[in-house]
């Protein structure tokens, strides 16, 4: 979109003010405990994958929102791999989700390979899953149980891009609590990643 005149720009500002949902990052449509809607995600395989159906394949499923250029996410990849390695044996499945407007299956497959991910990056066209779970930032993670209920949402941990040893491991703590039969000690945590370019 090209802004051709001051009046057009002002009209855009007014439009944004009138509709913060469309111009600002989306609000949270799903609360913890509610069921994640059926959203089709494109992956490396030929057939699209239903996010809700994916959740039924494991005790808990983790969706981490991805942006290929986000330094904050890159900084967390080692920690994310460690969480995956720790919880995969306990029937927890991990997926990256690319909800950005320029997402493509081919590019994300290359990214997953280059980054050495042990989990795929799934393309969320139209950012439907992101909007459904309130994901506005890369590193934002949600944990969904086998029934498709949202049990945790927030950052991987309390760090942004300078990692500290005393960071609060939000995602890891939530998985530990859920697998031990407790509610997460923190079920809503702040995510400190880059803004997702969803439109």
């Amino acid at each position: 979109m090209v802004v051709k005149s001051p009046s057009m720009l002002l009209a855009l500002v007014v439009a944004c003010a009138a509709s913060s949902v469309s111009c600002a990052a989306s609000g949270v449509a799903t609360r913890n405990g509610s069921v994640v809607p059926s959203v089709m995600l494109a992956g490396p395989g030929a057939a699209p994958l239903d996010a809700r159906a994916l959740a039924g394949d494991a005790a808990y499923t983790v969706f981490v929102f991805f942006s290929p250029d986000c330094h904050c996410l890159e900084q967390h990849e080692t920690r994310l791999r460690a969480v995956d390695a720790a919880f995969r044996p306990r029937d927890v499945h991990f997926f990256m989700v690319d909800s950005e407007v320029r997402a493509s299956v081919e590019r994300d497959a290359d990214e997953a390979r280059r980054r050495g991910y042990s989990f795929p990056i799934l393309v969320d066209r139209g950012a439907r899953l992101a909007d459904a779970v309130g994901a506005d930032y890369a590193t934002y993670s949600v944990v969904v149980d086998r029934e498709g209920r949202l049990r945790f949402r927030g950052g991987i941990d309390s760090d942004r891009d300078h990692l500290r040893s005393d960071a609060i491991p939000y995602l890891s703590d939530a998985l530990t609590d859920l697998l031990d039969g407790r509610e997460p000690r923190i079920a809503d945590a702040k995510a400190l990643g880059c803004a997702l370019q969803k439109w």
């Binding site: 942006s67 986000c70 330094h71 904050c72 891009d161 990643g193 880059c194 803004a195 370019q197």
Partner: peptide, 9 residues
């Protein structure tokens, strides 16, 4: 910090 989408703005 504008690496891509303004990492952390």
């Amino acid at each position: 910090r504008v690496r891509a989408q303004a990492c952390c703005a």
